[in-house]
Structures are given as C-alpha cells and as structure tokens.
Measured scan of single mutants.
Amino acid sequence: MTEYKLVVVGAGGVGKSALTIQLIQNHFVDEYDPTIEDSYRKQVVIDGETCLLDILDTAGQEEYSAMRDQYMRTGEGFLCVFAINNTKSFEDIHHYREQIKRVKDSEDVPMVLVGNKCDLPSRTVDTKQAQDLARSYGIPFIETSAKTRQGVDDAFYTLVREIRKHKEKMSKDGKKKKKKSKTKCVIM
C-alpha cells in the first residue's frame, strides 16, 4: 500500500485542523484551538488504489514558523489553505509557496490551493482571484467548507493525484537520464 505524506499549511484560523478532522473523523470542530502540530493517518481508496494518507496539520501562528522547514522537508505534497473571508490569509499563500519551493529546492512541488469556509456569506476573496492565482502557479484550486464537508475529500484526493503525477514524471525523467548515460565512448 502506497503511503502519501501530505502537509496542510496556511495562516492561523483558516480551518486547516477543521478540514483535516472532517476528512479523518467526519465531524466539524467549530471551536478554535490553535494547533502546534498534529499528525493523522487514514486509509482510503483513490482511483481504485488503496493508500495510506499521513497528514500533518501544522501551526499557522507566526511564533511556530521555525518548525516549518522541518515538516516541509518531509512532506510530499501540500494543501495551501486560505479562508475566503480573510484576504490576508490569501496573500500569505505566496509566502508559504515560496518557502516550500526553497526548502524542497524545487520549482515543481505537488500543491493544491484550497479556499476554505465557502459556506460563509462574508467572502472577501473572489473565486476568480483564487483561480487566477492557482493557474499562475500551475496547481489545482478547490473551494471547501469544513463545516458542510463540501470539497473536503476532493481537496485531499486531488493532492494525492498531483503527487502521483509528480512521481510518474520524475521516474520518466530518471529513465531518460539513465538511457543517456548508457551511451559509451570508444577510443581507438
């Protein structure tokens, strides 16, 4: 069974824990209790493949930012979460993405942009803004509501699919490099 290491990042209060708990335990946590770091595991079937999701729910508070490099190193894919009623959390996505790329030393890291709290009427981040940002990053965008469960499975499952595509691409690139290195030079 394939294991996928997913990391949920975003500013404090955007609903990272609520999304994760909704996926794992099928219930909505409405009281806000700032996370330092929590880890969850769940076995699911995605596109006919049974897999184990190892999900790291991270601290959004700035005082825990020193811990970010460590979990970013171990993560295979990242859910970059903002709240649709919090423009600052949307603007912060850029910083999370840049930090992930720096730590992973790669421009090509599996990510999904997630606009959470889409059940709320007080939207300050337009869907088109988020779609445009995701398009500019070359990553999928999904709106979710941890409260109603809308888009929750889709967000995590899409990230797994992005990781699969990335692994497939990397193995193809690896095979191309191996083929090239088999060419021999004969000096007579």
Rank of each mutant, 00 (worst) to 15 (best):
E98W: 01
C118K: 08
T144Y: 04
G138F: 06
T58G: 02
I142G: 03
K5W: 01
L23T: 15
Q70I: 04
R73G: 12
E37V: 01
D69H: 09
V9Q: 06
M188D: 15
S136Y: 12
T35E: 00
F82V: 08
V103K: 03
T148P: 06
V29W: 14
H166I: 09
T183G: 05
Y40A: 00
D30C: 10
E62Y: 05
C80N: 04
E37N: 00
K182H: 02
K5P: 15
T20C: 04
E62R: 04
N116H: 14
G115V: 10
K167V: 05
D57Y: 00
G10M: 01
Q99R: 09
K176E: 13
A66W: 10
K180W: 04
D173Y: 12
E168Y: 14
I46R: 14
S122P: 09
K101Y: 14
A134V: 10
P34R: 02
Q22W: 07
D173M: 05
S17L: 01
H166C: 09
K179M: 06
A134N: 10
V7H: 15
K178L: 06
M72P: 06
G174R: 10
K167N: 06
V81Y: 14
D108V: 05
T127E: 06
Y71Q: 13
I139F: 05
K165G: 11
R164W: 06
V152F: 12
S136I: 07
D108K: 11
Q70Y: 12
D154C: 04
F28P: 01
D108N: 05
C118Q: 11
H95G: 12
A83Q: 15
T50S: 11
Y64C: 13
D105P: 10
L19G: 15
D108A: 09
T124N: 09
Y157N: 12
G151T: 12
L23A: 12
R97V: 15
V8N: 03
E3C: 04
D54F: 01
E49G: 08
E162H: 10
D154K: 06
T183V: 09
F28D: 00
G13R: 07
R149C: 07
E31F: 03
T183A: 08
L133N: 14
E107A: 07
E63W: 02
Q25R: 05
G115H: 11
Q129A: 10
F78C: 02
H166D: 10
S89L: 02
V14L: 14
Y64H: 12
M170G: 10
S145K: 06
